[in-house]
Design a protein around this nucleic acid. Structure first.
Length: 355
DNA sequence: GCGGAGATGGACC
DNA sequence: CTAACGGGTCCATCTCCGC
């Protein structure tokens, strides 16, 4: 039997920082993304002592600071370093898997052939290896598909190991515990008196399709039954982007280009590192009131030149300012996509697969 | 009807 | 003091347009 392990490194950024500086181990540790405007920013990761104080990822630093105790430690995120550590750990995961898929800097799916007993002992082996070599813990979920494995890994944290032989442990849970259901979807489901995953599994398919569209409608119902046939496979990157906060809200072309040029320089370094040539360049803007607007331009042919990005962004920014005379910008970003070789469209899964 | 381009929105980490 | 809010990626859907 093929089984899937989903592995999640526990409060990854914060744990890496605790290893780097044992002085702070056990204290509330909050890894921060600073916006560059004084103390402004958001929480990237909080370790468990910090979470006990009510500090969570995504929270404004203001709020986190207000909840912090005296001995709490606030540190700037050092993503380059976390990436180095992550790469070493992903190599450990990969060598134990028949098929492997990294989902983010701290998460991955492993597919193995074997029994639940085999899978459980492999999970223990991996946890032990990560503990010995990297002094980090992780939480593992095991199931027959990616969805169940993912849901299982969230059951026990930190340092958990959860085997889910079927989907029954999750059926009674609130519907927003189902992977893929966020705040917007939740509001719509509530309107239809759908509160639990079980409710969703019995919902009217036509209603779901009407509300969410063909694909998502069917997918919701399938997922609510614990059914999922997504393969475990390496993900090919489709886009690269870099976003930053402006020193102050503005719509001055010169000031905005100053920030954009830094972002372009950085993004361009990454395209070279990843050997990607791009065709589409997108200007991302986030206004003072947090509305995101984008403008993009596709080149005649693939490019790997910085000048092509800069040129396109200059033009896009000029049109943006002309077309949105009332928008004052807070953050801006640059994205490149349509990489070479043209990434094959993810095999359109026949809708019949979900019937 | 199909595709690419462009814009937007939702979700997750 | 009734606010304030990072950064990155993926995917789906809609519109428009040429073919």
């Amino acid at each position: 039997m093929n089984l899937i392990l989903h592995i999640d490194l526990d409060s990854f950024y914060a744990s890496v920082e605790e290893n780097r500086n044992p002085e702070i181990r056990g204290k509330p540790v909050v890894v921060c993304m600073f916006s560059g405007r004084g103390e402004g920013g958001a929480v990237a990761t909080a370790n468990y002592p910090a979470r006990k104080l009510g500090i969570h990822s995504g929270q404004p630093l203001r709020t986190a600071k207000a909840r912090a105790s005296d001995e709490a430690v606030f540190l700037p995120a050092d993503r380059h370093h976390y990436k180095v550590v992550s790469d070493r750990i992903m190599a450990i995961f990969r060598k134990h898997a028949d098929a492997f898929e990294q989902r983010s800097i701290d998460e991955a799916y492993l597919q193995i052939a074997g029994s639940f007993t085999n899978a459980r002992s492999l999970a223990k082996t991996i946890k032990q290896e990560v503990a010995e070599k990297e002094h980090l813990t992780c939480s593992v979920g095991i199931g027959k598909n990616k969805l169940i494995a993912k849901m299982a890994s969230r059951e026990q944290k930190p340092d958990g190991l959860t085997v889910a032989k079927d989907f029954s442990p999750f059926s009674h849970k609130p519907v927003d515990k189902l992977f893929g259901i966020g705040p917007k979807t939740l509001v719509i489901l509530k309107r239809h008196r759908i509160h639990t995953i079980n409710d969703l599994s019995r919902a009217n398919l036509n209603m779901l399709i009407k509300e969410f569209g063909e694909r998502k409608g069917r997918l919701l119902k399938e997922h609510a039954h614990g059914r999922d046939n997504e393969p475990v496979e390496e993900v090919v990157r489709q886009q690269l982007s870099r976003i930053g906060t402006l020193p102050k809200d503005t719509r001055s072309y010169k000031d905005i280009m100053l920030t954009l040029q830094q972002l372009i320089d950085d993004l361009y370094r990454r395209t070279k590192k990843e050997y990607v040539a791009f065709r589409t360049i997108t200007l991302i803007t986030i206004t003072r009131i947090m509305e995101m607007k984008t403008k993009s331009h596709t080149l005649e042919k693939q490019s790997n030149k910085k000048q092509d990005i800069t040129q396109a962004i200059e033009t896009l920014l000029r049109s943006f300012l002309r077309e949105h005379p009332d928008d004052v910008l807070r953050r801006v970003g640059v994205r490149v996509s349509s990489f070479d070789p043209p990434k094959q469209k993810k095999k359109q899964r026949a809708l019949s697969d979900y019937k």
